[in-house]
Design a binder for these strands. Structure first.
Lengths: 236, 236
DNA sequence: TCGCCGAATATTGTCAACAATATGCAATAT
DNA sequence: ATATTGCATATTGTTGACAATATTCGGCGA
């Protein structure tokens, strides 16, 4: 993907990395990635020394990273007993959805108010990729693009606080062991249609409709959470 | 305020403290308190060594506390340049208000659905204290009670995620140097009436009205933020 | 055989020393 | 006189060692 960049830009990047990225920061991001992509499963214990060895750093930075992740709600720290990847009960997941649904409605309104040409292009690109993934029934890429689409919407509201609040909730939701909701081509096609409808409402500057569609979309997700859970009442 | 408690309860408390509170935790809470009550002002630099000395601990726990506070959005950490209490621009404060207003509406609806006898009592007690503070024109106690009232509403929704999300935003808002909004007896009296109206709607199980009143109440705050800011355009 | 106690081990909590980087100040050169 | 360079100091970044606590496992007694 990366094309040739002028040397100054590369240097500026390297400079920025050295300037802002400290060991605790990198460690935190790395652990967060491993949690969100499932390398580390909810409930799994995290040992300071082991992680420090794996990442080639001392325990200090790892401990600092833990504090950040705890505040982010991604891990659970119990004094003298170690830390685990946080497990999310279906009740907690449902409670998060309740907040998320409200935020989606706000996002729909604000992103429409704030939409730019650049934003339209970004969303179009994501939708195109989603179409390809849906066509090929590639579940994992589709799921990633789905997350990217909604995250992009939150960002394009132009309200970083809203974006951050939204991200926080979504990242915690990923702790809930997700039975593959979108597993067949039909559900992906349906999902794609919904995302296109949302895009259309935004492009038409119809904030009320975008808001409504996004809220409904999130409510569907919440309903799928219930449906996937209630029948199979055996956890694990 | 504290009354006599049975010895078992005290012991259990002490046990709980030792069990769950680690040094980094206590340090973080202490610094957070100092930030929220204004002992540490926005923009003020925080020196690891100095804080460690003051609190009688080593720099390690202080650094860990910093990570947590950074994730909470209360401080700003710049590599090799130290950490400051975060400053909130009026733009950021406004953006936070936008999210908060939406959450207040949700809180109004949920707290009404979820209200209990115990909750009614808690709110009544706070309102009574507010009335006394307003009567005496005691600004500081009134402000605290105001915060407590809204925080209690968020808690009584029975949705900890909603409560936590709300708290996060409110605590960041306290970073915005607050020109004393409620300075005279009239505005306190008005505020008290609004809080009583919200309570009444909840007690009447009128969720829609509680939601509307809370949203309006937050929108008023946001408007006061603008009004207090635009005339005096000179920052500091 | 089952349950309890205690030592050994592993893991986390805390600290102080060392390294790297930034800041402030003084001296020098233009 | 001003700007720049180099040094001294202060502050943060990282590490490894030591202390405290939990967990595990083997032995002992009922």
């Amino acid at each position: 993907m990366r094309r040739h960049y002028p040397i100054e830009m590369i240097l500026r990047d390297a400079f920025t990395v050295l300037r802002t990225r400290s060991l605790p920061n990198l460690v935190q991001e790395q652990i967060e990635r491993m949690i969100l992509d499932g390398t580390l499963s909810p409930g799994e214990p995290l040992r300071e020394a082991a992680l420090a060895n794996t990442l080639g750093v001392s325990r200090g930075p790892v401990r600092e990273a833990f504090r950040g992740l705890e505040e982010k709600g991604l891990i659970r720290v119990e004094k003298n007993c170690g830390v685990q990847v946080r497990t999310l009960s279906h009740i907690e997941a449902d409670q998060i959805y309740e907040v998320r649904i409200t935020l989606e409605a706000l996002i729909g309104r604000k992103v429409t108010e704030n939409m730019t040409r650049q934003g339209i292009n970004e969303l179009t690109a994501i939708l195109d990729d989603m179409a390809i993934a849906a066509e090929d029934s590639n579940v994992h890429p589709y799921t990633s693009l789905n997350l990217a689409y909604h995250d992009t919407l939150a960002r394009l509201t132009g309200n970083p606080q809203l974006h951050e609040t939204y991200r926080r909730l979504v990242s915690q939701l990923s702790l809930f062991r997700r039975r593959a909701y979108l597993h067949d081509m039909q559900s992906m096609a349906l999902s794609l249609r919904e995302h296109r409808a949302i895009f259309q409402a935004i492009a038409d500057a119809d904030g009320a409709r975008a808001s409504e569609l996004l809220r409904d979309h999130a409510e569907d997700s919440r309903r799928r959470l219930h449906d996937a859970l209630l029948p199979s009442d055996v956890p694990d």
